[in-house]
Design a protein around this nucleic acid. Structure first.
Lengths: 299, 299
DNA sequence: TTGCTCCTCACGTCACGTGAGGTGGC
DNA sequence: TTGCTCCTCACGTCACGTGAGGTGGC
């Protein structure tokens, strides 16, 4: 064959040994990648020139390279691949690793599909309203809290403001009377027990978070107060900043959003007063910062 | 309210200004994250103590933080979020960005689903055979090549070896006779034109890659040779290393794999002789390294 | 000799987590 | 004064890409 006038592949790499550039082309990886795999002991060159440090690879190293690439493609890290290849793991262990990988990918697909719904919701909003949503809604985990509150039904929206301030006064009065020590960072909040948005017969509670350790004693002392545990939950939440009067928009947006994203509410909506007590409000045009939490579950 | 014996939230943060730790708890992000967002000008503290460099945040900065978190959750980078928030982009541009994001997520879901199939294939193999596959198969893009070859039908497997070596001799003879200069790294290969695996009436071609620039002249000169372009394609590929006699296992695995992963073959299978010319083989037990490429399309 | 290939650092990527080492605030 | 919180570096993450600066091979 040496007499042919064209270069036969074997002429150049007589013992089927390739320089790194040629091996990288055959294997469809970068030279940098081969150097990295060498360094990580994932794939060492068949030989290394002791004077020039040139790396030389044998063609029959391709299967090993391909095994690495396949496992990488399945989503394993180079570290995991090293374990899988070097230790010749038993089949059961390989199956376990693959099963784990499969579960992870399954989960990731579900996550991406939910993300897709959230993107679609936002796109629909902008298409409809011509601007980004005023309230950014997302799901987060809410820890359990212990509350001391006063629950009552308000006849309609007109009476809401007065009613609420009256209840709050009573609440704080009772707390003072019983010399209550709450959590250092207690938060004032309102709960809405109606299962959907309504403008009359509003069943609500005004409350503050209290130290669960004192809850037992308090329950006996202050019978007027509703002492109860608010369970931990997942909730669609948003922080509203603006005049009290427009808070209702945020609330309805929240209900709309959970519908779009395939959730259903599963508990009273919680309204946290972040910018101070509602007792300090003088007008519906006063600015407040309020966090809304709507407990949800998959519909 | 100051007279209450418990700490009211407003007592501590009189103007609803929080230290970084408290703001990070309210916003459900780490302190480190807030510092980063400060540095990136994504969310600057409402005020910074000029002596201590303490960062102080206002409660009404929560909506901005949440907007950042929501956009991050949709998959935007902090850089993109900065553009979206700072420049008050027009709705059309926001929609375009969201549409792009949606397309990306769509694609990612499809990718992950295909990955899932590949994982399942491998799991099934290991469950069935008790060991990882001998040949690692994956899909890659193959560029177009120009070939000079000799096509013939081989009656059955017994005659295969002799037939092939005879054809190859003819091929190399013709190339020599016409003083052909091929690509420096030309590769010898075999093509299988039967659309599925068969052991008789095998329609095949033995060929070498040639420089496309010389293909025209060659076609006139060497009428005995089949000069043609092998189109670019996607192919399921594997590199087989071992005795020639077991190569057939790799071939059948390849066909099995594409079925499992919902592909169909769409062209003749290509067999590249990586470890040298088939002419040098003396026995079916000789070791070879061969790359198999099976052109595919979605079934 | 001229290109071309190879070599070894070493920085950059992305969004933080995790110390180290030091200081302010109640 | 003692914890607790805050501060600023600065390294690590993961799998490479991309030069910089220098040398071997045909």
């Amino acid at each position: 064959m040496r007499s042919y006038e064209f270069y036969v592949w074997l002429d150049r790499y007589d013992h089927a040994v390739l320089r790194i550039g040629d091996f990288s082309q055959l294997g469809r990886v970068s030279v940098r990648t081969l150097r990295l795999y060498d360094e990580l002991d994932l794939l060492k060159p068949a030989q290394v020139d002791k004077f020039t440090d040139y790396r030389y690879y044998a063609v029959d190293q391709l299967p090993r390279l391909n095994r690495i690439l396949v496992l990488k493609d399945l989503g394993f890290s180079l570290d995991e691949i090293k374990t899988m290849i070097d230790n010749a793991l038993p089949a059961t262990q390989l199956e376990a690793m693959l099963a784990k990988r499969k579960a992870d990918v399954d989960q990731q697909i579900r996550d991406e599909q939910e993300r897709l719904a959230r993107i679609a919701t936002r796109m629909a909003y902008i298409a409809r309203e011509g601007q980004p949503p005023l309230f950014d809604i997302f799901v987060k985990h809410i820890d359990a809290h212990t509350l001391a509150g006063i629950r009552a039904t308000v006849a309609n929206l007109d009476e809401m403001g007065m009613e609420r301030q009256a209840r709050l006064s009573t609440l704080y009065g009772a707390l003072t009377q019983h010399r209550l020590r709450t959590m250092p960072q207690h938060i004032e909040c309102a709960l809405y027990y109606n299962t959907e948005f309504t403008d009359e017969g509003i069943d609500m509670e005004l409350a503050v978070t209290i130290d669960p350790k004192t809850a037992g004693a308090l329950a006996k002392d202050a019978a007027a107060l509703h002492i109860h545990e608010l369970p931990a939950c997942e909730a669609a939440t948003t922080v509203y900043g603006g005049p009290v009067s427009d808070l209702v928009q945020a609330i309805s947006q929240l209900y709309y959003w959970i519908g779009e994203n395939n959730y259903a509410s599963c508990g009273p909506m919680r309204e946290l007063h972040l910018s101070g007590s509602e007792l300090d409000l003088r007008s519906a045009r006063d600015l407040v910062t309020v966090e809304l939490q709507l407990p949800i579950e998959r519909a």
